[in-house]
Design a protein around this nucleic acid. Structure first.
Lengths: 132, 132
DNA sequence: CTCTCTGTTATATTCATTATATAACAGATA
DNA sequence: TATCTGTTATATAATGAATATAACAGAGAG
């Protein structure tokens, strides 16, 4: 599998899974309808517990990024991804806020901060350049 | 005091303190040399423990945003704030990354994401428009 | 000098979260 | 029937966050 987990990180394993799966969808390495490994097999692959994987899947299902079929397993949402609604924009602003504040204190201008944001976005997208 | 703490939030109290103090410095509501309340008085004001405030101060001192003098108390760094070094840029990228990924999945373009970042930065700065 | 303030350090305890280990259930399929 | 799937239910260990006390050393005020 193409996923990697850092057990020493301060960010929870299930969060790492959620983030990497979203990145996979964003970069189109994972396309709508693509199957995902079962909670048991992925857990075995990564050397972690079944419930940790399941927690990640549950969050992504709740947010509308994944669909679950009995026996068919887990699949990347085939019917269109959820949009950038008000709830997400609020979450986004809340996440950016402390980063923007520290950037400002450290002397980064608004333009530099915006460009840095764009650069991260760009680099993320380029990961699936040649759609696997 | 102008600080507010959300005890129900999932973000730790000491992190809320760190973030708000950095925001205060960014918006110039807190200027270099300005005195901060003692760990005991601020803790009493907010109805929290002394150690929680101390932990926030320690982090900000470690990062170079605050200075500590015996008896004089805590003071906003008067000798120039730390710059946007490589370590911070890495931390910044790591923080932006999951936000950019989800924004992309939800249909936001690179330009929209950059503008959103700029908007948060801008709004943050405007908080100390009329420098207190 | 004594009292009182400051940050600092040291323990101990409670609580929630994270991650684990088992176990079992219900639906789908070979 | 046997085996895979997600799902649910407990229980447990480990960690981090927050609290409660207590004590120490430096720096002033009286």
């Amino acid at each position: 599998m193409w996923m990697e987990i850092d057990l020493q990180s301060d960010v929870p394993i299930y969060t790492q899974l959620v983030d990497q799966l979203i990145e996979g969808i964003a970069s189109e390495q994972l396309k709508p309808g693509d199957p995902l490994p079962s909670v048991r097999s992925l857990a075995a692959d990564l050397g972690i517990n079944l419930h940790t994987v399941n927690k990640a899947y549950q969050i992504l299902k709740q947010d509308g990024f994944l669909q679950v079929h009995r026996k068919q397993g887990v699949v990347v949402q085939p019917g269109g991804m959820p949009g950038a609604d008000a709830a997400f924009r609020a979450k986004l602003a809340k996440g950016i806020r402390p980063l923007a504040a520290e950037a400002a204190v450290r002397g980064m201008t608004e333009a530099e901060f915006a460009e840095q944001s764009a650069a991260v976005y760009r680099q993320l997208m380029s990961k699936g350049e040649n759609a696997k």
